[in-house]
Structure formats: structure tokens, C-alpha cells
Nucleic acid binder design. Structure first.
Lengths: 232, 232
DNA sequence: CGCGGCTTTGATGTTCATCAAGTAAAGTGG
DNA sequence: CCACTTTACTTGATGAACATCAAAGCCGCG
């Protein structure tokens, strides 16, 4: 194919953006690259399904995904939204045999995969890598835990304010953005009904905090929004 | 003092109970033991304070503690309850410079401490240890995340049922136990007001699901309680 | 003995979910 | 490309779940 070298090159430039690999030897990076599989998913595609065995380590190269969980008698819950350079299976790969959640693409998404055995081997043969994984896990889980405990103490207005700021600041770094999820999914993410999501968002629109046009949102008064998120 | 050898001996017998150290060399175990500090805390003592710098790895040898967080404008939230052999600082030691929560003893408690630098050194020099830490972190964080997402979808009766089963099954392994926390703290743990905690617990008592006597609780009908926790 | 925190119960009010019904948008098959 | 179906969005009315407020008894502790 002649494309192999090219792929490796792409992989290198992708990987170097990622802190974990910053201090790894090039030999080590090549070893990782050569054992990886690259896959494309369209918006809406299911990347992993709840209940399936966990046997791969997955890295999000581009796009946006949601981790979500379904339970009998209950509607879906979105655990969190992952963005490029997140290791989206880090939550379970070391502790569970089967996925307790599904991962679904919210936008067109590229991922890289390694086998669990390969990952384990790399950890056991490279303590720096192991330490980097530990730090990465700690960050991810910490973020999930603090954000969910914070959401739970807020009232509905505070939650909506929080989630709008999240998309604006953490995902798009722009006060102007297009929501990648439906109103229903916002409800699943912050624990409220679709109707109330809609009600409160359009309330914010009327109050001049945001400008609303379908899925497009512009944050006009981020300070007032932050105050609502804080006090909520 | 002549007690040093004794202490090391205790430490060994304590440590071997812990899966992490199962496959470590005795030399390695001795190295860890010799650098540890052992401390005692009385019920109610604060073991670490929110806002303080994170510089130690703490292991819970005996007793029971709560990890809890306070925020301006909001009441306390209990993040989780740790039991013996838990690594109670694992949540933040690798990702934060300062504690985002406090740890307080719920019963008389013994802990062991290492410096962060020592821990880091041990990880970098022993890949098996690193891997064990990774697995341990994964288990702890997974448990916290799944239990909080599950609690959040339940109604108040479901939450109370859940928490009673938690103490009975996970903490005391006995249908007969004495609550280590106040009604107010139960509210902080499962996100509801003290008054409603009381109301629902005594409702369960009247309905014959449990037998209640102050802080002493006996679970009479665990199956019905489980059904309430499930469907809640 | 008296003070403060814990517990309990009842009354009231607010927030939020549920239900209902209708419009807009987006995908589907002929 | 148009009828058709489905899914998303929106608004209002109602009721249930839960928080808040108030008052009083209990218990441990200085």
C-alpha cells in the first residue's frame, strides 16, 4: 500500500500532542503505533456497547462521544462527554470484564485501539508509561466525580447554566457554539426532564443571558450565568 | 524501644491482607514498612482537611472514615465512606496539589502514611506495584461513580433502602448493625434532608422492613428492601 | 443544671416531574 | 420530490415529591 509509513507518521503527530507520550522513547512510540488499529465512526454510531467484554484500550483521536448507561425501569443516564485525546475506556479497562456503559459518537469520530494485553505489557515494561497512565486516570475520574457531586447540589437553573458553560468553555472554547446533543440528552446528562431543559434554556434566552437559535447558542452574559451556576 | 521489630511484624501481617502487596518481594515490603508512619485517630477527628496540600499517601488500617466536601452556599456532601484496606487518598494524590475534600474518622481509626515522593519512587521502580495501583484506583473510582449515578436516579425511599443495604452488606456483613453516622450525615451522603431521612427510616420501621432502635438497625426483610432499592 | 446538637412530627410551600397536545424538523420509502 | 412517519421541540396545566419552617422532646457534656 505504501501508506503504512504515512499512517505511522500521522500517528506520531497525533500522539505527541498527548502528554502521556511526551517523555516516551521513539522506539516505544513506534511499538505502540504499530500495534494500533484506527477506526472511523459516524455521528450516532455505537462505538462500544454496554455488556460487551472489555478487551481494548480506546483513545479518542477526533470528534466527540458520550458514555451512557441504561438500566431496567430507568431512562438513559449520560455519565460524561469525552473529547479528543481522552482515553475513553480508562474507567473500566483495569477493573471490569464487561462494559457497564455504552459509548456513542456525538459527531463524526476517529478512534485508535490497542488490545488490553498489549497495554498491560507496555505498562509492565515501562514504569514511566505506567505512571503517566496513573496520572491520567486520576484526572479523568476526579473530573467525573467532582462534576457529578457539584451538579447534584444544584437546582435545575444552576445545572443548565453549568452545562452551557461546560460546552462553551471546555468543549468549544467559544461563547458561540452548536449543541452536539439534543435537549433530551442534556436532561440525561444533568438529571432532569426534557421539558424542563427546554423551559429553562428558553427562559435564559428571554432574560438575555444567551441568544438561542435551535441548537446554536451564543453566551451573552457569562458572568451572570456563572453566578447562577455557582449559587444554584 | 525494642518495639520496632514488632511494628514491622504488625505491618507485614496488615499488609499481606491487602491484594496490592500479595506478589511483592519481601525486600520491597520491608522497604515500604520502614518508611511508613502509623497514626491513631479518635471518632470525629479530622484526618485531612480540605484545602491542605496533598503530600502523603494514606492507607486505612482499621476503623471507618468519610470523605466529605464543603462548598460556599451549600451544605456538606459526603462523597464516600471508606473501610479498612482502602487507600483513602488515591482519588487525588496523582492529580491534585491540594485536597478537595476532608477526611474525618467515623470510628476510632488507624492509618498508615507514606510520603508522595516515596510512593512515586516505588511506582517507578516496580512495574508490578504500579499495575496493582492502577487496578486499585480503577476499582475505587468505578465504585464511586456507579454508586453515585445509581443513587441519583432513585427516589428517596430507594436511596434509604440502598444505604441501609450498603451498611449491612458492605460495611458490617451483618443484618444487625449500629449506624456509624447521624441522620444528618445520611442526608449528606445520599442527597436529601435530615427530616426526610428520619421520616422514611421510621416508615420502614412501621412497615416491618427493619427494626429500629436509635442508631441500632436490624434488617428484617432484605428482599423487600432490595426491591425498593431496585425500583426506586 | 443548662446549653447545643441530634431526633422527631406536623404543617406549609416550592420545585420539579408528569401528562397532554400541538408545531417544527428530519429522516424514509415510493 | 412529495406524502408519510418518526423524532425533536415547545407550552401549558396538574399533581406528586420533596424541601423548608416550626416546635418540642431527648441526650450527652461541660
Amino acid at each position: 500500500m505504501g501508506k503504512d509509513e504515512n499512517a505511522q507518521c500521522n500517528c506520531f503527530s497525533c500522539i505527541v500532542k498527548n502528554l502521556i507520550f511526551e517523555h516516551m522513547s521513539t522506539k516505544f512510540q513506534e511499538e505502540m503505533c504499530s500495534s494500533k488499529k484506527e477506526l472511523l465512526f459516524k455521528k450516532g454510531d455505537v462505538i462500544v456497547s454496554q455488556g460487551q467484554p472489555v478487551d481494548e484500550f480506546i483513545y479518542l483521536k477526533s470528534g466527540l462521544v458520550k458514555l451512557h448507561q441504561q438500566k431496567p425501569f430507568h431512562h438513559d443516564v449520560i455519565i460524561f462527554i469525552a473529547k479528543p485525546f481522552d482515553f475513553i475506556t480508562l474507567l473500566t479497562i483495569f477493573s471490569e470484564t464487561h462494559y457497564q456503559y455504552s459509548i456513542t459518537a456525538l459527531e463524526d469520530t476517529e478512534v485508535c485501539k490497542f488490545s488490553y494485553d498489549k497495554l498491560r505489557e507496555m505498562i509492565l515494561s515501562n514504569a514511566n508509561f505506567a505512571f503517566a497512565i496513573i496520572q491520567r486516570m486520576s484526572c479523568v475520574t476526579n473530573k467525573i466525580i467532582t462534576s457529578t457531586t457539584e451538579l447534584n447540589r444544584k437546582n435545575l437553573r444552576g445545572r443548565i447554566a453549568q452545562i452551557l458553560l461546560f460546552f462553551s468553555e471546555e468543549i468549544y472554547q467559544n461563547p458561540n457554539f452548536t449543541l452536539p446533543i439534543t435537549r433530551k440528552e442534556i436532561g440525561e446528562l444533568i438529571g432532569m426532564t426534557t421539558e424542563n431543559v427546554i423551559r429553562i434554556i428558553s427562559e435564559f434566552n428571554k432574560d438575555g443571558l444567551i441568544h438561542l437559535d435551535g441548537k446554536h447558542i451564543e453566551i451573552l452574559e457569562s458572568n451572570r450565568l456563572k453566578a447562577i451556576a455557582e449559587k444554584g
